[in-house]
Design a binder for these strands. Structure first.
Lengths: 300, 300
DNA sequence: GTCACATATGAAACGTATTTTCAATGCCGG
DNA sequence: CCGGCATTGAAAATACGTTTCATATGTGAC
């Protein structure tokens, strides 16, 4: 084709400005081309789902006309117009910001529950990261990396976090124990001495069964760490280092335990990664070995 | 899971979650398919500009492989993948992708570790929420809400998630047990019958010790649910409902267990809230009562 | 090792969507 | 009413996407 009078104008086929371009060029279009352009401008998403033939039928024209319209709009052919259309559709799809502010209600459809929970947990993570004192964290990491042994206290939901931390520390070759039995925790705490580390995890900061072993450890000279949502709670009086978790808004269907757990896990992960960095020479092979050991326990 | 082994997962080919889907499905891909998937995930915009043949050449594979990959990602063919790609490209063009892309390094300062971990976990949550099949989730919720008893199987890190779920279900008055001892799990699974629910949690989808009890439960007529990162894993053959967790990029200092746990917990939370909604009349007072029971165990 | 089997892969055949060509039609000025 | 030009769609030509199938590449058993 030796390009004749009516040809592409403007260089980039920027998808955003498509509606404007349609309006600008409409006067220079023939009747059938206008029908096509109109359809495209009115429902980009719908048209993106159609083939040339489909769009031709929809607008009561022919394939040739559709292609001609695409050309006039600045694309090499219909295929490219269609791609631009898909992009445009995606953009205005995402433009609708969800902004989930409401609490979870009893009659929320399941999809909303998923969206709200995910959003809340993301929020909790951001808050926790922002509020975490990296100096305290660094100190806790240093102590843990050098510790002879590490005891972790946690009860209820926090007990699972304690176990999570312990599992990970064990994997990099450290000696760590999680205690959720208050009596055993205390009897073990007595064994601790300077150079050892004791970590108490409690959202409320006032869980007696967790504070008690930390106090014992503290008095025996161990380095003590508290991971708590209440930096002014009773637990902190026996803690050398306090790591604060964030407290997200809770509701009847979303107990505090849920977001505090997310927050605690982030702190625990940071602690773990910090320790793994400091002890990299032993941690890396230990991690590899534990991975290897599990490999043959998989089916198929 | 009625349909075949290798099949599309999730319903909508939502463009946003494409990178996540690539990561989730990467393990079940062949080498050449992985090359294609990688190219697509790394440069959606660039790939959207290519024809099948072009993409095949770019990745050093054949057209057939490209189409196969598109199918695996949940699209009817390459044409539709390409449209989705164009949409994705347009989105991140306008959205200005922030993305902390670097892995955690051995010498990262602790503040960076916190930021990167928080970011990654947020990403994992978003991906999981996007990829979660709400129909399957709804079905699992319905089954669990009406169950006579609920058994949950999980080992290692997944064991903690299993316990987390169990703890919460117990709080709303349901009968739930977590098993991480494979033998006890199986002997308990034998007791299950129609109307009961068994839930297996395994990131790899191939943990024999978790699959076995689920198989037994399945064969005894219980409704079975699998929470796994591998929708094509061995575990799904005995699962009535499959809930897919997302697989985040992992590295030496950030083992898969970390993000899979985040993902699993979100799924488990959704399950819990869903069940709590359905059983609100009994769940609400039960929650209040358990809260009350703990109140006097706090100091000061 | 090597044999049998399964899986992965690309070349080429095939079908469909897009583009081009071209003849028919309508419109306008003389 | 006629010639010339713009518009249009049917159908041919082509580019693209999909499917098939034979070959290659492992992988586990013996």
């Amino acid at each position: 084709m030796t390009n004749d009078v009516k040809e592409t104008f403007g260089r980039a086929p920027a998808p955003a400005a498509l509606a404007a371009k349609v309006r600008t060029l409409a006067p220079s279009m023939t009747r059938s081309m206008q029908r096509v352009a109109e359809a495209v401008a009115n429902d980009p998403a719908g048209c993106a789902a159609l083939t040339v033939t489909g769009l031709a039928e929809l607008t009561g024209t022919s394939e040739a006309t559709v292609v001609r319209t695409a050309r006039l709009l600045g694309y090499p052919g219909y295929r490219d117009l269609r791609l631009a259309l898909a992009g445009l559709a995606a953009q205005q799809e995402s433009g609708r910001a969800p902004a989930i502010t409401t609490d979870i209600a009893v009659d929320d459809p399941i999809a909303d529950v998923v969206a709200k929970l995910a959003y809340d947990e993301q929020q909790t993570l951001a808050d926790t990261a922002a509020g975490l004192d990296t100096v305290q964290l660094g100190a806790a990491v240093t102590a843990a990396a050098a510790a002879r042994r590490i005891d972790v206290y946690g009860i209820g939901a926090s007990g699972l976090v304690a176990q999570d931390l312990t599992q990970k520390l064990l994997r990099i070759g450290l000696i760590a124990h999680a205690h959720s039995d208050p009596h055993l925790a205390v009897t073990n705490a007595v064994q601790l001495r300077a150079g050892d580390v004791a970590i108490a995890i409690t959202h409320s900061g006032s869980t007696g069964d967790v504070i008690e072993p930390l106090r014992v450890a503290f008095e025996h000279g161990a380095t003590t760490v508290a991971i708590t949502g209440r930096p002014d709670g009773a637990v902190t009086q026996y803690a050398d280092h306090v790591l604060t978790t964030s407290t997200a808004r809770e509701s009847e269907l979303r107990p505090a335990a849920m977001s505090s757990r997310t927050s605690q896990l982030l702190v625990v992960d940071c602690l773990f990664v910090g320790v793994a960095q400091r002890t990299y020479d032993t941690a890396a092979p230990a991690l590899a070995a534990s991975y290897e050991a599990l490999a043959h326990r998989h089916r198929r």
